[in-house]
Design a protein around this nucleic acid. Structure first.
Length: 636
RNA sequence: GCCGUUGUGGCUCAGGGGUAGAGCAGCUCACUCGUAAUGAGCAGGUCGUCGGUUCGAUUCCGACCAACGGCUCCA
């Protein structure tokens, strides 16, 4: 029999008999590797261990340590789940079941939705199937054969998928009596699946289209071993503990009320204080960067929204009101009044760029099912600005915004990623406008030296945009900042400036937010810090705590001094045990507890206890004021 | 908007066809006690809303509202 030559990742080569598989290659290298092998990579393409090699292939063995391992394990686990579901619910129709970032899911078409008890049964069945270590085999068929096969076993969704694929041949993976259309690759046998858990049941539309039938999706996750699975499940628990809705209630920051309406947060004193600190910070930072602060009204005539195109494209998300037979739209965006400010006088190229900043509160009628704590609400305040500039200035302005975002995210300690979104199907504006705007954003992204991704077709209807997603301490991503180019609104509103040659020219408008919305950003902050905010943004920075009633007059005096100095301080002079008061302040995550007993009264000091349990040296109240002031200056 | 789950005093939750219970918080009293819960007593709910079934519903059924997990959508 002829020999073939295979190249390994270290560039060494190996001779094998013709017809050898990836597994044979692993076995020829060593028994240990053969045992650890999960899949292979031939010429960069992920394949099964059973794949045959041909002469000249370069091959890599995928083991648990390979970055691709997790996806393969999860994908095979989703098949295992489908197998279990088919055994328990033979009438269920299988659809698709991919690996995702945090695990996997599989969508089924069933008459009756799954119950939590079903989930337990399915998981138990999966354990049995895994321990029986069934071989997972790949077979190739012509599309026509595959279709008749799936017709015979009554799987219409698979037939639809094959028809849409429009290819000659398809692959089918089988394990036991279960067979599924799939590109693969998969683990060699079900016994290789060692650590998984089914997590939740949800409705999901076939092919993600809400006009299609709703399927039942089961989410699960799988890891290389039990230890990693446990670590992940612990992280889920930690995320639950940090949930901003829970902490928001515990720290008395905000609430929602049926009587007020869904999606309308009510800001309690401490939450409002947190907002105020952020808003003051933003005003200062914007003034530093030559923005002008402006203010527009909450409602504007409907005719204006018609002119802007919002009425046409965004009406379903808007609230309207009518007074004296005049219809008004409650603003879902702040751009219109900013444009009217621009239009209020004749502008020269010497005036540009103009940067109008507004902490603009907007209302958007989001669909009922999408609301989520502070992350998705119907009334929120954007740190919104519109930059009007010449085409020549666009590049520098966008770069300026990106550096602004970077400065702010560094202060809060967030990592972030950038994405460019291009023209969507439903849009206004000419092709050339879109090209020019997209080009400007792209060049700024390239110049930033940071990695970025491209989301084709995900732009706003009036222009392309850069979205900035920050990562919190649990590695979750949140859309906050966005920079949107707009060639359309200046056109619609006939915005002009007089250029150096005396000609009237059209400015470009850039819509941008840094934090995004104060509401969402606070939600992210709460979860990131688990409610233990840095001193500079803590709504309550310190609390004066007395040991007994004897110290009340002095404690009041200290409280007054701190208040007058602008420290956000509270006092707890209740007739309670010190340990009880410390406990309450601790649960409120107040950075400093200023303990006052007889000793402090005598010496005219306070003893600050940080919320991590450590005491600072006893110090004079004015020293504490100085200390807090300095810390806040450096955003600690 | 769609699928599923849930909805009991301020909070966390138990209960269940015959007109409601705990802990915490609140209030009162006693204790004046130095770094995560002092003790005793009191008070507090038309069991999300509106209909239906029933001699009788908070408990069963339906609609609506809201929250939660997703889908779709988005700052």
């Amino acid at each position: 029999m002829a020999n073939i030559s295979i190249t390994l990742p270290d560039n060494s080569s190996r001779e094998l008999q013709e017809g050898a598989t990836v597994y044979d290659l692993a076995a020829s290298i060593g028994a240990g590797l053969a045992k650890a092998a999960l899949a292979g990579k031939i010429n960069g393409q992920l394949v099964d261990l059973s794949s045959r090699l041909t002469d000249g292939d370069s091959v890599e063995i995928v083991t648990e340590k390979s970055p691709e391992a997790l996806d393969i394990i999860r994908h095979s686990t989703s098949h295992l789940m489908a197998q279990a579901v088919k055994e328990l619910f033979p009438q269920a129709k299988v659809t698709i079941g991919p690996a995702i970032e945090t695990g996997f899911y599989y969508d089924f078409d069933v008459e009756k939705p799954f119950t939590p008890e079903d989930l337990e049964r399915i998981e138990a069945k999966m354990l049995v199937l895994a321990s029986s270590d069934q071989k997972i085999e790949r077979h190739e068929y012509s599309s026509a054969d595959a279709i008749s096969m799936f017709e015979a076993i009554g799987e219409p969704y698979k037939i639809e998928l094959i028809n849409d694929l429009g290819v000659e041949r398809v692959s089918v993976y089988s394990q036991g009596t279960f067979a599924d259309l799939c590109r693969g690759p998969h683990l060699p046998s079900t016994g290789r699946i060692k650590a998984f858990k089914l997590l939740s049941i949800a409705g999901a539309y076939w092919r993600g289209n809400e006009k299609n039938r709703m399927l039942q999706r089961i989410y699960g996750t799988a890891f290389i071993d039990k230890k990693e699975l446990e670590a992940y499940l612990n992280r889920l628990e930690e995320a639950k503990r940090r949930d901003h809705r829970k902490i928001g209630k515990e720290l008395d920051l905000f609430s929602f009320s049926d009587e007020v309406g869904a999606g309308f947060p009510i800001w309690h004193p401490k939450g409002a204080m947190l907002r105020m600190v952020l808003e003051d910070f933003e005003r200062k930072e914007h003034l530093k960067r030559d923005y002008d602060i402006v203010v527009g009204p909450q409602i504007l005539k409907s005719e204006l929204w018609q002119r802007s195109g919002h009425y046409e494209n965004y009406r379903d998300n808007m609230y309207f009101t009518e007074v004296d037979e005049q219809s008004y739209g409650i603003k879902p965006m702040n751009c219109l009044s900013h444009m009217m400010i621009y239009k209020s006088q004749l502008r020269s190229y010497r005036d540009l760029p103009l940067r109008f900043f507004e902490l603009g509160t907007v209302h958007r009628h989001e669909r009922a099912g999408v609301l989520h704590g502070l992350m998705r609400v119907r009334c929120f305040t954007q740190d919104d600005a519109h930059i009007l500039c010449t085409p020549e200035q666009l590049d520098a302005e966008i770069k300026g915004v990106i550096s602004f975002v970077n400065d702010v995210m560094t202060i809060f300690g967030f990592e972030y990623e950038m994405e460019l979104s291009t023209r969507p199907e439903k849009s206004i504006g000419s092709d050339s406008d879109w090209e020019q705007a997209t080009e400007a954003l792209l060049s700024a992204l390239k110049d930033s030296g940071r990695p970025y991704e491209i989301n084709a077709g995900d732009g706003a209807f009036y222009g392309p945009k850069i979205d900035i997603k920050l990562r919190d301490c649990l590695d979750r991503r949140w859309q906050c900042a966005t920079i949107q180019c707009d060639f359309t609104l200046p056109e619609r509103f006939d915005l002009t400036y007089v250029a150096s040659d005396g000609e009237r020219k059209r400015p470009i408008m850039v819509h941008r937010v840094i934090l995004g919305s104060i509401e969402r950003f606070i939600g992210v902050l709460i979860e990131h810090f688990a409610g233990s905010f840095p001193l500079w943004i803590s709504p309550v920075q310190a609390i004066v705590v007395t040991v007994t009633d004897n110290q009340i007059p002095y404690a009041q005096d200290v409280y007054r001094q701190l208040r007058n100095a602008g420290i956000r301080v509270e006092r707890d002079v209740r007739n309670e045990k010190l340990s009880f008061k410390i406990r309450e302040a601790q649960l409120q995550k107040i950075p400093y507890m200023l303990v006052i007993g007889d000793k402090e009264v005598e010496q005219g000091t306070v003893t600050p206890r940080y919320r991590d349990g450590k005491n600072l040296q006893a110090m004079k109240p004015e020293e504490f004021i100085e200390f807090v002031t300095q810390e806040c200056k450096t955003f600690k």
